[in-house]
Design a protein around this nucleic acid. Structure first.
Length: 547
RNA sequence: GCCUUCGUAGCUCAGUUGGAUAGAGCAGCGGACUUCUAAUCCGCCGGUCGCGCGUUCGAGUCGCGCCGAGGGCACCA
């Protein structure tokens, strides 16, 4: 019996009590069932009596008593105790708890998935780094977190489009092109230009493709066209090697081609969505929490940058997305209000725009923060990180922390102490369970028999309980947009598995006969393998057969 | 000044939407492999949850005010 099933059973008990007239309260849709911190408090606990006591006008302990009598009658429930102010502590019999092992194996990759987001079309925009250089650590964090989040959404039934917005329209692209041109001409980096080894490399490659580029009519334009395309290629390749592939690479330039932005702005002007003041046209972003309204059309008649954002949202809506999520760095948190205001001006519900603000990744060297500067060429890139620790460790390290917290990356430390990375703890649990299965097979243990009542060891009770929490953890990760919950859960699961492994055996000792206990434990072993694999897949981390 | 994120063990961080005695890893100390992987496990040590009020049966979690750290506050893109 899973916590979900128990939750439903408790709801049914509440409804029954209402029907019999012993209770008068609105029965909630879901009853929260938790794993108590202390094992003395049973397998599962609920505080539902405390929550409903006031609304029902009843002493919580009395309400708990009504519930406990009904719960005891449910098959699989071993005992129900009332504790403290009205907690219900529930114990299941081993057979009821152990059935989960078989359920998980049979569900396979589908175990843990849900339908909370079924039918929802989500546009998830992340990374979106300017094509003026390689992806740095900040972008790498969003690549890992964003891709994982996309996988988590899909596991809840959503249709997800991973989108990358290329800012290839503005002045920073010109600076990039000027930097390439200057390099090719043997001149120093322009005042506001970009420097770094990658500039040298891109320049050299452009010259290789177009040897006569410097004598072209407009060499800077040629460098812009070829160099930017080359940078796109580099970025896409790095992300692909990182296990992140976008469905759509959206070019800002495409919004401006054919006067689309201008036409949309005219429409907004005439519909009264923008207002005119002091020679400029403004967006009412203060309605959505901004400090001040934002200029959309400057007094010189040109569109401000935000005009592109407005057109972009409109484009996304026209492509049919219910939910448009922007993953931005903390240095862009001021964009939240204007993006929501943009949606509102277009006549959309601002709730269709959701902005996730993630904190910064800092580079640390010998315990001292180091400023990363693209122009100075001191950036640490996605490729640097992968070269140092590999894709699995890099993705895991970036995904296991809440996006709300800053993270410090010390490249030297990561290189020296890779074994401290918890990813190995989780991966090892998977590899170990696979080894246990191989050995079991060699000893003649198969899954022909299953008797859940045999799973009585304390570590088995614990492992089953942790396994049972996976669907809820996954749903929470999707709901809160927090992939780190999956990583933390996997660490807990790996711990429960390692303890079980140390305390029991799947395969019989040599000379012993294969029993149903061995077979049943193989189910439990394989169930753990499955959940570890399912969770690691959501993080984009491999689940090795051997380590 | 305003907005925003953070402040939990020596260090890095969780904390299941307000529950019972606040957890894990690392670091430190002490144990466990003549049988499925010791990249593991067990034990010990370690806390005024930044500070103060408030909300209520109950606060690390919610509200307000301070203190401290990071990031923002353009008719730039």
């Amino acid at each position: 019996m899973t916590p979900e099933q128990l939750s439903h059973a408790i709801s049914a008990c509440l409804s029954d009590a209402v029907a019999s007239g012993e209770l008068s309260v609105e029965v909630p849709d879901t009853v929260r069932v938790e794993r108590p911190k202390s094992r003395e408090h049973g397998d599962w606990a609920t505080n539902i009596a405390l929550q409903l006591g006031k609304r029902a006008g009843m002493n919580p302990r009395e309400l708990a008593r009504l519930l406990s009598e009904r719960l005891r009658a449910i098959p699989g429930v071993d005992s129900v105790d009332i504790a403290g102010p009205g907690f219900l502590n529930i114990r299941l019999d081993a057979a009821a708890a152990g059935g989960l092992a078989r359920d998980i194996v049979q569900a396979g990759a589908a175990f843990g998935t849900g339908d909370a987001l079924a039918g929802t079309h989500i546009n998830l925009e992340f990374v979106s780094a300017n094509p003026t250089g390689p992806i740095h650590l900040g972008g790498t964090r969003w690549a890992a977190v964003g891709d994982s989040l996309a996988r988590i959404f899909q596991a809840q039934g959503a249709e997800v489009t991973r989108e990358y917005y290329f800012n290839d329209h503005g002045a920073q692209i010109d600076r990039f092109a000027r930097s390439l041109l200057a390099k090719a001409q043997g001149q120093p980096t322009p005042e506001d230009g970009y420097a770094g080894q990658y500039i040298d490399e891109i320049t050299a490659r452009v010259l290789e493709i177009e040897p006569d580029i410097l004598s072209a009519a407009d060499p800077q334009e040629r460098f812009r066209a070829v160099g930017v395309e080359m940078m796109f290629g580099e970025i896409k390749a790095s992300l692909h090697d990182f296990g992140v592939d976008f469905d759509v690479y959206f070019h800002e330039d495409s919004l401006h081609q054919g006067g689309k932005v201008e036409a949309l702005l005219e429409q907004l002007k005439s519909s009264g969505s923008l207002y005119f003041d002091a020679g400029a046209w403004w967006l009412r972003s203060t309605d959505h929490g901004d400090d001040k309204d934002r200029v959309v059309i400057k007094s010189d008649g040109n569109a401000a940058y935000i005009a592109g954002d407005i057109a972009y949202i409109q484009d996304k809506r026209e492509r049919g997305f219910d939910l448009n999520i922007y993953m931005l760095g903390a240095d862009h948190h001021g964009y939240v209000a204007r993006l929501k205001a943009a949606a509102a001006a277009l006549g959309h519900d601002p709730a269709c725009v959701e902005v996730m603000i993630g904190q910064m990744v800092n580079l640390v060297k010998d315990g001292v923060p180091v400023r990363m500067s693209k122009r100075a060429g001191t950036v640490v890139t996605l490729e640097d990180l992968v070269d140092a620790v590999g894709v699995d460790a890099a993705r895991y390290a970036l995904t296991r922390y809440s996006s709300d917290s800053n993270i410090d990356i010390d490249l030297d430390l990561l290189q020296q102490k890779t074994n401290d990375n918890p990813v190995f703890y989780v991966q090892y649990a998977h590899a170990r369970s696979r080894a246990a299965a191989r050995n079991a097979a060699a000893a003649g243990v198969d899954r022909s028999g299953f008797d859940a009542a045999l799973l009585t060891h304390a570590t088995e009770n614990e492992l089953l309980a942790v396994l049972a929490q996976y669907p809820h953890q996954l749903a929470g990760a999707a709901e809160h947009r927090e992939p780190h919950r999956v990583a933390r859960y996997l660490e807990t699961l790996a711990g429960a598995y390692h303890r079980w492994y140390g305390a029991t055996r799947v395969a019989p000792l040599s000379g012993e006969e294969v029993t149903d206990l061995n077979r049943t434990r193989l189910w439990l072993n394989d169930a753990t393998t499955q959940v570890l694999a399912n969770g690691l897949a959501l993080l984009g981390v491999s689940a090795p057969e051997k380590m």
